[in-house]
Design a binder for these strands. Structure first.
Length: 370
DNA sequence: CCTACCGGGCTCTGCCATGACG
DNA sequence: CGTCATGGCAGAGCCCGGTAGG
Protein backbone atom coordinates (compact mmCIF):
# COMPACT_ATOMS: atom_id res chain seq x y z
CA UNK A 1 0.00 0.00 0.00
CA UNK A 2 2.76 2.38 0.93
CA UNK A 3 4.47 1.52 -2.31
CA UNK A 4 1.37 2.32 -4.32
CA UNK A 5 1.20 5.78 -2.83
CA UNK A 6 4.80 6.44 -3.68
CA UNK A 7 4.15 5.31 -7.20
CA UNK A 8 1.21 7.66 -7.54
CA UNK A 9 3.36 10.47 -6.37
CA UNK A 10 6.07 9.72 -8.87
CA UNK A 11 3.79 9.15 -11.80
CA UNK A 12 2.72 11.96 -14.06
CA UNK A 13 -0.64 13.32 -13.06
CA UNK A 14 -2.53 11.87 -16.00
CA UNK A 15 -1.72 8.37 -14.77
CA UNK A 16 -3.47 9.20 -11.53
CA UNK A 17 -6.60 10.29 -13.31
CA UNK A 18 -6.83 7.01 -15.17
CA UNK A 19 -7.00 5.10 -11.91
CA UNK A 20 -10.29 5.20 -10.05
CA UNK A 21 -8.67 4.98 -6.62
CA UNK A 22 -6.48 7.91 -7.33
CA UNK A 23 -8.95 10.44 -8.62
CA UNK A 24 -9.63 11.94 -5.23
CA UNK A 25 -5.97 11.90 -4.44
CA UNK A 26 -5.20 13.87 -7.56
CA UNK A 27 -7.74 16.58 -7.02
CA UNK A 28 -6.45 17.16 -3.51
CA UNK A 29 -3.70 19.57 -2.52
CA UNK A 30 -1.07 17.23 -3.93
CA UNK A 31 -2.29 17.97 -7.45
CA UNK A 32 -2.14 21.70 -7.16
CA UNK A 33 1.39 21.22 -6.01
CA UNK A 34 2.34 19.28 -9.16
CA UNK A 35 0.28 20.84 -11.91
CA UNK A 36 -2.15 23.62 -11.10
CA UNK A 37 -4.53 24.25 -14.05
CA UNK A 38 -4.16 21.76 -16.84
CA UNK A 39 -5.70 18.90 -14.96
CA UNK A 40 -9.13 20.44 -14.48
CA UNK A 41 -12.15 18.83 -16.04
CA UNK A 42 -14.58 20.89 -18.08
CA UNK A 43 -17.49 21.45 -15.69
CA UNK A 44 -20.10 22.30 -18.29
CA UNK A 45 -19.10 19.25 -20.30
CA UNK A 46 -19.55 17.11 -17.20
CA UNK A 47 -23.01 18.54 -16.63
CA UNK A 48 -23.92 18.00 -20.24
CA UNK A 49 -22.82 14.39 -20.22
CA UNK A 50 -24.39 13.78 -16.88
CA UNK A 51 -27.76 15.02 -18.09
CA UNK A 52 -27.46 12.67 -21.03
CA UNK A 53 -27.09 9.77 -18.64
CA UNK A 54 -23.41 9.13 -19.29
CA UNK A 55 -21.59 7.15 -16.64
CA UNK A 56 -18.95 9.71 -15.71
CA UNK A 57 -16.74 7.50 -13.52
CA UNK A 58 -16.63 4.98 -16.34
CA UNK A 59 -15.78 7.61 -18.95
CA UNK A 60 -13.16 9.13 -16.65
CA UNK A 61 -11.55 5.78 -16.05
CA UNK A 62 -11.33 5.06 -19.77
CA UNK A 63 -10.34 8.32 -21.40
CA UNK A 64 -9.76 10.98 -18.77
CA UNK A 65 -8.36 13.49 -21.22
CA UNK A 66 -11.64 13.85 -23.05
CA UNK A 67 -13.34 15.27 -19.96
CA UNK A 68 -10.83 18.11 -19.87
CA UNK A 69 -11.39 19.22 -23.42
CA UNK A 70 -12.91 22.62 -24.10
CA UNK A 71 -14.39 21.78 -27.49
CA UNK A 72 -16.51 18.67 -27.81
CA UNK A 73 -19.50 17.61 -29.85
CA UNK A 74 -21.63 15.50 -27.53
CA UNK A 75 -24.84 17.21 -28.63
CA UNK A 76 -24.03 16.75 -32.28
CA UNK A 77 -23.12 13.12 -31.70
CA UNK A 78 -26.31 12.46 -29.75
CA UNK A 79 -28.43 14.13 -32.38
CA UNK A 80 -26.68 12.21 -35.12
CA UNK A 81 -27.06 8.83 -33.45
CA UNK A 82 -30.67 9.57 -32.59
CA UNK A 83 -31.39 10.34 -36.23
CA UNK A 84 -30.05 6.89 -37.05
CA UNK A 85 -32.44 5.28 -34.61
CA UNK A 86 -30.31 4.96 -31.50
CA UNK A 87 -32.15 5.32 -28.21
CA UNK A 88 -30.87 7.67 -25.48
CA UNK A 89 -29.71 4.89 -23.14
CA UNK A 90 -27.60 3.38 -25.89
CA UNK A 91 -26.13 6.75 -26.75
CA UNK A 92 -25.16 7.27 -23.12
CA UNK A 93 -23.66 3.82 -22.99
CA UNK A 94 -21.66 4.44 -26.14
CA UNK A 95 -20.16 7.64 -24.74
CA UNK A 96 -19.50 5.99 -21.39
CA UNK A 97 -17.58 3.21 -23.05
CA UNK A 98 -15.79 5.29 -25.66
CA UNK A 99 -15.70 8.92 -24.58
CA UNK A 100 -13.56 10.05 -27.49
CA UNK A 101 -16.65 9.61 -29.66
CA UNK A 102 -17.74 13.08 -28.57
CA UNK A 103 -14.72 14.65 -30.25
CA UNK A 104 -15.88 13.73 -33.75
CA UNK A 105 -17.49 16.41 -35.88
CA UNK A 106 -20.88 15.96 -37.50
CA UNK A 107 -19.36 16.03 -40.97
CA UNK A 108 -16.91 13.31 -39.95
CA UNK A 109 -19.71 11.18 -38.49
CA UNK A 110 -21.84 11.59 -41.57
CA UNK A 111 -18.97 10.55 -43.81
CA UNK A 112 -18.01 7.56 -41.69
CA UNK A 113 -21.57 6.37 -41.46
CA UNK A 114 -21.93 6.50 -45.23
CA UNK A 115 -18.80 4.39 -45.61
CA UNK A 116 -20.10 1.77 -43.20
CA UNK A 117 -23.40 1.72 -45.01
CA UNK A 118 -21.57 0.49 -48.08
CA UNK A 119 -21.49 -2.85 -46.35
CA UNK A 120 -24.57 -2.82 -44.14
CA UNK A 121 -28.09 -2.81 -45.51
CA UNK A 122 -29.62 -0.57 -42.90
CA UNK A 123 -28.85 2.02 -40.26
CA UNK A 124 -30.26 -0.45 -37.78
CA UNK A 125 -27.42 -2.87 -38.45
CA UNK A 126 -24.79 -0.21 -37.93
CA UNK A 127 -26.46 0.91 -34.72
CA UNK A 128 -26.39 -2.64 -33.44
CA UNK A 129 -22.69 -2.97 -34.01
CA UNK A 130 -22.04 0.45 -32.56
CA UNK A 131 -23.84 -0.35 -29.36
CA UNK A 132 -22.00 -3.62 -29.15
CA UNK A 133 -18.60 -2.14 -29.82
CA UNK A 134 -18.38 1.65 -29.84
CA UNK A 135 -14.63 1.43 -30.07
CA UNK A 136 -14.76 -0.31 -33.44
CA UNK A 137 -16.54 2.61 -34.98
CA UNK A 138 -14.94 5.51 -33.18
CA UNK A 139 -11.37 4.55 -32.42
CA UNK A 140 -9.99 5.83 -35.69
CA UNK A 141 -10.69 9.28 -37.06
CA UNK A 142 -9.21 8.43 -40.42
CA UNK A 143 -12.04 8.14 -42.90
CA UNK A 144 -9.66 8.00 -45.80
CA UNK A 145 -8.10 4.88 -44.32
CA UNK A 146 -11.56 3.40 -43.88
CA UNK A 147 -12.34 4.08 -47.51
CA UNK A 148 -9.09 2.46 -48.60
CA UNK A 149 -9.79 -0.46 -46.35
CA UNK A 150 -13.10 -1.10 -48.02
CA UNK A 151 -11.48 -0.91 -51.42
CA UNK A 152 -8.71 -3.22 -50.30
CA UNK A 153 -11.05 -5.81 -48.82
CA UNK A 154 -13.21 -5.78 -51.92
CA UNK A 155 -10.17 -6.06 -54.15
CA UNK A 156 -9.44 -9.40 -52.52
CA UNK A 157 -12.44 -10.77 -54.28
CA UNK A 158 -14.30 -11.85 -51.18
CA UNK A 159 -18.03 -12.03 -51.71
CA UNK A 160 -20.38 -9.30 -50.55
CA UNK A 161 -21.83 -11.78 -48.09
CA UNK A 162 -18.45 -12.57 -46.61
CA UNK A 163 -17.57 -8.90 -46.38
CA UNK A 164 -20.77 -8.39 -44.43
CA UNK A 165 -20.05 -11.34 -42.15
CA UNK A 166 -16.50 -10.13 -41.65
CA UNK A 167 -17.51 -6.69 -40.54
CA UNK A 168 -20.45 -7.80 -38.47
CA UNK A 169 -18.34 -10.28 -36.62
CA UNK A 170 -15.08 -8.39 -36.32
CA UNK A 171 -15.86 -4.72 -36.89
CA UNK A 172 -12.42 -3.78 -35.68
CA UNK A 173 -11.18 -4.89 -39.10
CA UNK A 174 -12.62 -1.62 -40.42
CA UNK A 175 -10.47 0.44 -38.11
CA UNK A 176 -7.23 -1.33 -38.75
CA UNK A 177 -4.79 0.50 -40.94
CA UNK A 178 -4.84 -0.74 -44.51
CA UNK A 179 -1.18 -1.67 -44.07
CA UNK A 180 -2.03 -3.95 -41.18
CA UNK A 181 -4.76 -5.72 -43.13
CA UNK A 182 -2.54 -5.90 -46.16
CA UNK A 183 0.26 -7.44 -44.07
CA UNK A 184 -2.08 -10.18 -42.97
CA UNK A 185 -3.14 -11.00 -46.51
CA UNK A 186 0.47 -11.00 -47.63
CA UNK A 187 1.39 -13.33 -44.81
CA UNK A 188 -1.37 -15.74 -45.78
CA UNK A 189 -0.31 -15.66 -49.40
CA UNK A 190 3.29 -16.22 -48.45
CA UNK A 191 2.24 -19.24 -46.39
CA UNK A 192 0.38 -20.58 -49.40
CA UNK A 193 3.35 -20.14 -51.71
CA UNK A 194 5.76 -21.64 -49.19
CA UNK A 195 3.58 -24.74 -49.16
CA UNK A 196 3.66 -24.97 -52.91
CA UNK A 197 0.08 -23.77 -53.34
CA UNK A 198 -0.83 -22.47 -56.76
CA UNK A 199 -3.53 -19.92 -55.93
CA UNK A 200 -2.53 -17.64 -53.05
CA UNK A 201 -5.47 -15.31 -53.73
CA UNK A 202 -7.96 -18.09 -53.32
CA UNK A 203 -6.07 -19.41 -50.30
CA UNK A 204 -6.30 -16.10 -48.46
CA UNK A 205 -9.96 -15.67 -49.41
CA UNK A 206 -10.78 -19.10 -48.07
CA UNK A 207 -9.04 -18.50 -44.77
CA UNK A 208 -10.73 -15.13 -44.32
CA UNK A 209 -14.11 -16.64 -45.06
CA UNK A 210 -13.51 -19.41 -42.53
CA UNK A 211 -11.90 -17.27 -39.90
CA UNK A 212 -13.58 -13.93 -39.64
CA UNK A 213 -11.32 -12.91 -36.80
CA UNK A 214 -8.15 -13.23 -38.79
CA UNK A 215 -7.66 -9.49 -39.32
CA UNK A 216 -7.85 -8.66 -35.66
CA UNK A 217 -5.05 -11.10 -34.85
CA UNK A 218 -1.42 -10.21 -35.13
CA UNK A 219 0.63 -11.59 -37.98
CA UNK A 220 3.11 -12.83 -35.38
CA UNK A 221 0.46 -14.99 -33.81
CA UNK A 222 -0.74 -16.42 -37.10
CA UNK A 223 2.79 -17.11 -38.27
CA UNK A 224 3.72 -18.78 -34.98
CA UNK A 225 0.65 -20.98 -35.05
CA UNK A 226 1.14 -21.97 -38.67
CA UNK A 227 4.73 -22.95 -37.94
CA UNK A 228 3.80 -24.79 -34.79
CA UNK A 229 1.10 -26.86 -36.44
CA UNK A 230 3.31 -27.68 -39.40
CA UNK A 231 6.16 -28.89 -37.24
CA UNK A 232 4.32 -30.50 -34.34
CA UNK A 233 2.16 -32.56 -36.69
CA UNK A 234 4.90 -33.06 -39.27
CA UNK A 235 2.48 -31.93 -41.94
CA UNK A 236 3.34 -32.43 -45.55
CA UNK A 237 2.82 -29.31 -47.67
CA UNK A 238 -0.39 -30.62 -49.13
CA UNK A 239 -1.71 -31.70 -45.74
CA UNK A 240 -0.97 -28.22 -44.42
CA UNK A 241 -2.70 -26.54 -47.37
CA UNK A 242 -5.78 -28.66 -46.85
CA UNK A 243 -5.85 -28.15 -43.10
CA UNK A 244 -5.51 -24.37 -43.19
CA UNK A 245 -8.20 -24.07 -45.83
CA UNK A 246 -10.68 -26.08 -43.81
CA UNK A 247 -11.42 -26.16 -40.07
CA UNK A 248 -7.76 -25.47 -39.38
CA UNK A 249 -8.28 -21.84 -40.37
CA UNK A 250 -10.07 -21.25 -37.12
CA UNK A 251 -7.47 -22.55 -34.73
CA UNK A 252 -4.95 -20.11 -36.14
CA UNK A 253 -6.31 -17.40 -33.91
CA UNK A 254 -5.91 -19.26 -30.68
CA UNK A 255 -3.22 -17.59 -28.61
CA UNK A 256 0.05 -19.27 -29.36
CA UNK A 257 0.56 -20.40 -25.77
CA UNK A 258 -2.92 -21.91 -25.59
CA UNK A 259 -2.40 -23.75 -28.84
CA UNK A 260 0.83 -25.26 -27.57
CA UNK A 261 -0.63 -26.08 -24.19
CA UNK A 262 -3.81 -27.68 -25.53
CA UNK A 263 -1.86 -29.52 -28.14
CA UNK A 264 0.66 -30.99 -25.71
CA UNK A 265 -2.07 -31.91 -23.30
CA UNK A 266 -4.03 -33.74 -25.98
CA UNK A 267 -0.93 -35.55 -27.13
CA UNK A 268 -0.24 -36.79 -23.61
CA UNK A 269 -3.86 -37.73 -23.04
CA UNK A 270 -4.02 -39.79 -26.22
CA UNK A 271 -0.76 -41.44 -25.29
CA UNK A 272 -2.21 -42.43 -21.94
CA UNK A 273 -5.14 -43.98 -23.80
CA UNK A 274 -2.80 -46.08 -25.87
CA UNK A 275 -2.73 -43.94 -29.00
CA UNK A 276 0.40 -43.05 -30.93
CA UNK A 277 1.65 -39.97 -32.74
CA UNK A 278 -0.18 -41.05 -35.87
CA UNK A 279 -3.47 -41.05 -34.01
CA UNK A 280 -2.80 -37.60 -32.65
CA UNK A 281 -2.19 -36.29 -36.13
CA UNK A 282 -5.19 -38.10 -37.57
CA UNK A 283 -7.42 -36.61 -34.91
CA UNK A 284 -6.27 -33.05 -35.60
CA UNK A 285 -6.63 -33.52 -39.34
CA UNK A 286 -10.12 -34.93 -38.83
CA UNK A 287 -11.23 -32.05 -36.68
CA UNK A 288 -8.65 -29.55 -35.56
CA UNK A 289 -11.11 -27.58 -33.47
CA UNK A 290 -10.53 -30.05 -30.65
CA UNK A 291 -7.51 -27.86 -29.98
CA UNK A 292 -9.88 -25.05 -29.10
CA UNK A 293 -11.21 -26.94 -26.14
CA UNK A 294 -9.36 -26.26 -22.91
CA UNK A 295 -7.26 -29.19 -21.80
CA UNK A 296 -9.23 -29.82 -18.60
CA UNK A 297 -12.53 -29.88 -20.39
CA UNK A 298 -11.23 -32.01 -23.20
CA UNK A 299 -9.78 -34.56 -20.79
CA UNK A 300 -13.07 -34.72 -18.96
CA UNK A 301 -15.00 -35.29 -22.18
CA UNK A 302 -12.64 -38.04 -23.22
CA UNK A 303 -12.93 -39.70 -19.80
CA UNK A 304 -16.70 -39.63 -19.98
CA UNK A 305 -16.66 -41.26 -23.40
CA UNK A 306 -14.15 -43.92 -22.33
CA UNK A 307 -16.23 -44.75 -19.27
CA UNK A 308 -19.20 -45.36 -21.55
CA UNK A 309 -17.22 -48.07 -23.30
CA UNK A 310 -16.18 -46.13 -26.35
CA UNK A 311 -12.70 -46.81 -27.69
CA UNK A 312 -10.14 -44.06 -28.01
CA UNK A 313 -9.70 -45.04 -31.64
CA UNK A 314 -13.33 -44.32 -32.36
CA UNK A 315 -12.97 -40.80 -31.00
CA UNK A 316 -9.77 -40.31 -32.99
CA UNK A 317 -11.70 -41.17 -36.13
CA UNK A 318 -14.69 -39.04 -35.18
CA UNK A 319 -13.48 -36.21 -32.98
CA UNK A 320 -16.50 -34.06 -33.76
CA UNK A 321 -18.39 -35.73 -30.95
CA UNK A 322 -16.13 -33.68 -28.67
CA UNK A 323 -17.74 -30.57 -30.10
CA UNK A 324 -20.77 -31.05 -27.90
CA UNK A 325 -21.03 -29.88 -24.33
CA UNK A 326 -20.27 -32.19 -21.45
CA UNK A 327 -23.87 -31.94 -20.36
CA UNK A 328 -25.12 -33.02 -23.78
CA UNK A 329 -22.61 -35.80 -24.04
CA UNK A 330 -23.54 -37.15 -20.61
CA UNK A 331 -27.27 -36.98 -21.34
CA UNK A 332 -26.90 -38.76 -24.62
CA UNK A 333 -24.68 -41.45 -23.20
CA UNK A 334 -27.25 -41.96 -20.47
CA UNK A 335 -30.13 -42.33 -22.92
CA UNK A 336 -28.13 -44.66 -25.11
CA UNK A 337 -27.00 -46.88 -22.28
CA UNK A 338 -30.59 -47.31 -21.11
CA UNK A 339 -31.40 -48.58 -24.59
CA UNK A 340 -28.40 -50.84 -24.48
CA UNK A 341 -26.76 -49.12 -27.40
CA UNK A 342 -23.64 -50.91 -28.55
CA UNK A 343 -20.99 -48.42 -29.62
CA UNK A 344 -18.71 -51.10 -30.96
CA UNK A 345 -21.40 -52.43 -33.22
CA UNK A 346 -23.16 -49.21 -34.17
CA UNK A 347 -20.43 -46.60 -33.96
CA UNK A 348 -20.46 -43.26 -32.22
CA UNK A 349 -21.80 -41.07 -35.01
CA UNK A 350 -25.12 -40.95 -33.17
CA UNK A 351 -23.48 -38.62 -30.66
CA UNK A 352 -22.69 -36.13 -33.39
CA UNK A 353 -26.12 -34.92 -34.40
CA UNK A 354 -28.55 -32.15 -33.65
CA UNK A 355 -31.04 -32.47 -30.79
CA UNK A 356 -33.84 -33.01 -33.23
CA UNK A 357 -32.05 -35.75 -35.08
CA UNK A 358 -30.91 -37.36 -31.87
CA UNK A 359 -34.43 -37.44 -30.42
CA UNK A 360 -35.80 -38.89 -33.62
CA UNK A 361 -33.14 -41.56 -33.45
CA UNK A 362 -34.01 -42.29 -29.83
CA UNK A 363 -37.65 -42.70 -30.68
CA UNK A 364 -36.87 -45.12 -33.43
CA UNK A 365 -34.59 -47.14 -31.18
CA UNK A 366 -37.14 -47.06 -28.36
CA UNK A 367 -40.04 -48.22 -30.46
CA UNK A 368 -37.93 -50.85 -32.10
CA UNK A 369 -37.54 -52.50 -28.72
CA UNK A 370 -41.22 -52.88 -28.07
C1' DC B 1 -34.75 -44.19 -43.73
C1' DC B 2 -29.99 -43.56 -42.68
C1' DT B 3 -25.35 -41.73 -42.43
C1' DA B 4 -21.41 -38.91 -43.64
C1' DC B 5 -19.85 -34.74 -44.84
C1' DC B 6 -19.84 -30.13 -44.62
C1' DG B 7 -20.46 -25.47 -43.43
C1' DG B 8 -22.71 -22.08 -40.98
C1' DG B 9 -24.97 -19.51 -36.83
C1' DC B 10 -24.19 -17.50 -32.54
C1' DT B 11 -20.29 -13.96 -31.39
C1' DC B 12 -15.53 -11.00 -29.78
C1' DT B 13 -14.96 -6.66 -26.49
C1' DG B 14 -12.51 -3.75 -23.54
C1' DC B 15 -8.24 -2.86 -21.85
C1' DC B 16 -3.24 -1.66 -22.06
C1' DA B 17 1.23 -0.08 -24.11
C1' DT B 18 3.55 2.58 -27.22
C1' DG B 19 4.83 5.75 -30.66
C1' DA B 20 3.36 9.88 -33.23
C1' DC B 21 2.26 14.39 -32.95
C1' DG B 22 1.61 19.14 -31.57
C1' DC C 1 4.23 17.39 -21.67
C1' DG C 2 -0.69 15.64 -22.90
C1' DT C 3 -3.53 13.50 -26.19
C1' DC C 4 -4.54 10.66 -29.93
C1' DA C 5 -4.28 6.69 -32.95
C1' DT C 6 -3.04 2.23 -33.37
C1' DG C 7 -1.48 -2.62 -32.48
C1' DG C 8 -2.01 -6.32 -29.63
C1' DC C 9 -3.67 -9.10 -26.01
C1' DA C 10 -6.83 -12.28 -22.83
C1' DG C 11 -10.43 -15.51 -22.69
C1' DA C 12 -11.04 -20.40 -24.36
C1' DG C 13 -17.53 -23.90 -27.54
C1' DC C 14 -21.89 -25.53 -28.71
C1' DC C 15 -25.26 -26.54 -31.80
C1' DC C 16 -28.03 -26.98 -36.23
C1' DG C 17 -29.40 -28.60 -40.62
C1' DG C 18 -28.75 -29.01 -45.98
C1' DT C 19 -27.59 -32.42 -49.03
C1' DA C 20 -25.57 -36.39 -51.49
C1' DG C 21 -25.66 -41.00 -51.75
C1' DG C 22 -26.38 -45.58 -49.89
Amino acid sequence: MAQRQILFFLWPVRRCASLPVASRFCSSKQTTFILPQVNLENESLLENLSSMGVDLPSARRRQPGVLRKQLTNEQGLAHFLKSKGTDPETIASIISRFPRSITRTCAHLEERWTLWRNVFQSDREVVEILSRSPESFFRSSDNKNLQENLEFLMSLGITAKDLHRLLTTAPRTFSNSVELNRNMVELLQAVCLSLGGSDPQQFSRTIISRNLYIFIRSTNRIRANVDFLKSSLSLSPSEALTLFQSHGAQILDLSHESLKKNSESLRRKLQSLGCGAGDFKAMILNYSLVLFISSERLNEKLDVLMEAGIHAQQVVQKPKVLDFSLVSIRQRLHHLSRLGYDFQKSGIAVLDSSKKRFSAKMERLGSAEE
